[in-house]
């Protein structure tokens, strides 16, 4: 069982085609691993913002808020999963929602592996060495995007072009969801104030 929880994710990030195939067809992905990775990304990001070395840390400590990380990582993650699922079901993708969650979460593993050590290392860096910090965090991001690409390609059984297209559409759908969400939210607010006004009107008329 240890195989599935540690070895397989590490195998997947270096052999993505192989790994994602096994994840889909050999049923080797675990939701527990996926959510742990997500939680670790959140923790890594919080730690990075708070404890990265002075030379690379441009955050105003008075405005750091750990809940923001939830907003900027967990929410977009699920938005991505939902919108990717919405797009791919319409475009003949073979992936199930669970597989999308797994593929996306497993793609985040490089971030967990690279960013915390770099946070630690950045505390011992001088100005000239900070390029390595930026370089490696950049590598983590590119790796993540690459894995996400291979992941969606494999689980949906798409061609490369179609994967790029669906990923692009997913991002647009994410924006649409956010837009609709805020719209519904403000409508609800207006309905609420309307009802409150009606109530006040009634009690003041008496």
């Amino acid at each position: 069982m240890r195989q599935e929880y540690f070895k397989f994710p590490l195998h997947l990030i270096v052999h993505p085609f192989d790994g994602y195939w096994d994840l889909k067809y050999e049923n080797r992905g675990r939701l527990g691993v996926a959510f742990s990775v997500l939680a670790l990304v959140v923790i890594a990001s919080i730690v990075q913002r708070q404890y990265a070395g002075f030379l690379v840390n441009f955050n105003d400590p008075r405005r750091l808020n750990s809940f923001d990380e939830l907003l900027y990582i967990v929410l977009p993650f699920f938005l991505w999963c939902v919108s990717n699922w919405s797009v791919t079901t319409l475009m003949g993708g073979e992936g199930k929602f669970k597989e999308i969650v797994l593929a996306s979460a497993y793609a985040l593993i490089p971030m967990v592996l690279i960013n915390p050590p770099m946070t630690l290392a950045s505390r011992f860096m001088v100005q000239e060495e900070t390029v390595f910090y930026y370089l490696l965090t950049m590598v983590a991001t590119i790796w993540f995007i690459g894995l996400l690409f291979v992941g969606s390609m494999t689980i949906h059984q798409y061609s490369a072009g179609k994967t790029v297209l669906t990923m692009f559409l997913s991002v647009i759908v994410m924006l649409i969801i956010v837009f609709l969400g805020t719209l519904v939210f403000s409508m609800m607010q207006q309905i609420y104030t309307f009802l409150v006004n009606v109530y006040r009107e009634i009690i003041f008329r008496q």
């Binding site: 002075f54 030379l55 001088v126 100005q127 000239e128």
Partner: peptide, 17 residues
């Protein structure tokens, strides 16, 4: 660090290290 001077911080850090 209190003065938010990253350039001189880097110099001092290099020497300290």
């Amino acid at each position: 660090e209190m003065g938010m001077d990253r350039k001189n911080y880097s110099v001092a850090f290099k020497r300290y290290r």
